[in-house]
């Protein structure tokens, strides 16, 4: 019997973490076997309300639960934000292609994230940390509007530094500091200043970017300027989606179904595409 890809499996919402004023992380325990790889996404159903695509932000190595970090922007995300632990949600997927870790192996990995775009990057980062020795340098760059706007604040500002600073270089910035902030101030692109001093060979270095469209645009241009090749810059494309199966047509970008061929693409595949940043 063939699988019905439209049928969500049930998962119990067990924990809700308030990250910022409009972003929450939801921990869900799937009631049937479910696994994913970093970069893949799910369609999360609020029963009777609707579904929307999200990239799990938890480590794929975590087998007991998965987490999604969701910004409140519309119908489904607002319904999600109103939920309390104990309710049942639906999970379809995983969909899309994972980050190509085999390509990353033996290379520097520069991660650049902004806003809720950090969600897939957290899953990626935790995956890299499982097998740290496979990669050369790992540089984690991220920015937020103000110190209050960091999601995963404790990890990014503290915990990960303690656990991983032997391997990882963190470059953290805010657009606007408050009185307590002692770190860098500037747009996330400023964290890439001086990167060419740190990366010895751009043939063996990849950059992975996820964030709001403008941030991705300017980060990509900056990375090109620094010395990255289009094929070494990996971008997450956010498009309107419905099926997740490469059929319904909503996510189409040129000949690609973003849900199936992506959602992560090397910039080399996108650079001649009209309206990439829209």
């Amino acid at each position: 019997m063939i699988r019905n890809s439209y049928l969500p499996i049930p998962g119990e919402l067990v924990k809700v973490v308030e990250e910022t004023s409009n972003i929450k992380t939801f921990r869900i325990v799937p009631e049937e076997e479910f696994s994913f790889q970093a970069g893949q996404f799910i369609e999360l159903t609020v029963p009777g309300v609707g579904e929307a695509p999200f990239t799990p932000s938890s480590s794929p190595f975590e087998k007991k639960f998965l987490e999604v970090t969701v910004m409140k922007v519309g119908r489904v995300t607002t319904a999600l934000h109103e939920l309390e632990p104990g309710v049942k949600l639906g999970i379809r997927g995983p969909f899309g292609a994972p980050y190509p870790l085999d390509v990353f192996a033996g290379k520097d990995v520069v991660i650049v994230g902004g806003g809720v775009g950090l969600a897939p990057l957290r899953a990626l980062f935790l995956t890299l940390m499982e097998e740290k020795d496979k990669y050369k340098k790992i540089i984690f760059c991220c920015g937020a509007k103000t110190p209050e706007d960091f999601i995963y604040r404790e990890s990014i500002l503290d915990k990960w530094h303690r656990e991983f600073s032997d391997k990882v270089c963190f470059r953290i910035t805010v657009d606007q500091a408050d009185e307590k902030w002692k770190g860098n101030v500037g747009l996330v692109t400023t964290t890439l200043d001086g990167l060419n001093g740190e990366i010895s060979n751009f043939d063996t270095s990849v950059a992975v970017v996820c964030g709001p469209p403008v941030m991705m645009k300017f980060t990509t241009f900056k990375l090109l300027e620094v010395g990255y090749k289009p094929e070494s810059i990996y971008l997450s494309m956010e498009k309107n989606m419905s099926c997740g199966l490469g059929k319904c047509g909503h996510c189409m970008m040129g000949p690609y179904y973003v849900c199936k061929d992506g959602p992560v693409f090397p910039y080399s595949k996108l650079k001649n595409m009209p309206k990439v940043w829209d």
Partner: peptide, 24 residues
């Protein structure tokens, strides 16, 4: 043409996903 849209509905007893034609 085969574009479509999925939406969710509360049926009589269960939740349902419905597929309808959609237009690009």
């Amino acid at each position: 043409c085969y574009c479509y849209l999925l939406y969710d509905e509360k049926g009589k007893e269960n939740y349902e996903k419905i597929r309808i034609w959609d237009y690009c």
